[in-house]
């Protein structure tokens, strides 16, 4: 069975954008800081709209921020 995993580079991109805080990113992307924390921890997968807003905050394409991996899982 194939299981999809979505990883992101949000934490790295924050570093590269003047050490942007989670709160700053949340304000600019239109979400709460809690959602940013969960995204960075890989515990939340955003909607397409939020993914686009986060990517645009960094001036990047969605696929430069989010990475979709498909791996085979037994069971």
């Amino acid at each position: 069975m194939a299981k999809a995993e979505i990883k992101n580079r949000i934490r790295r991109l924050r570093f590269e954008h003047g050490e942007m805080t989670q709160q700053e990113l949340a304000n600019r992307a239109g979400c709460t800081r809690q959602t940013i924390v969960l995204l960075e921890q890989g515990r939340y997968v955003p909607s397409l709209a939020l993914a686009f807003r986060i990517a645009r905050t960094f001036g990047a394409k969605v696929e430069e921020v989010f990475e979709w991996n498909e791996r085979e899982v037994e069971g």
């Binding site: 934490r11 050490e19 805080t21 989670q22 709160q23 709460t32 809690q34 924390v37």
Partner: peptide, 19 residues
């Protein structure tokens, strides 16, 4: 945590306003 990138993601998740 304070949300500063230097700290990385805090272990404890901050509460959302609705929470």
């Amino acid at each position: 945590g304070s949300g500063d990138p230097a700290e990385g993601s805090p272990v404890e998740v901050p509460m959302a306003p609705l929470q």
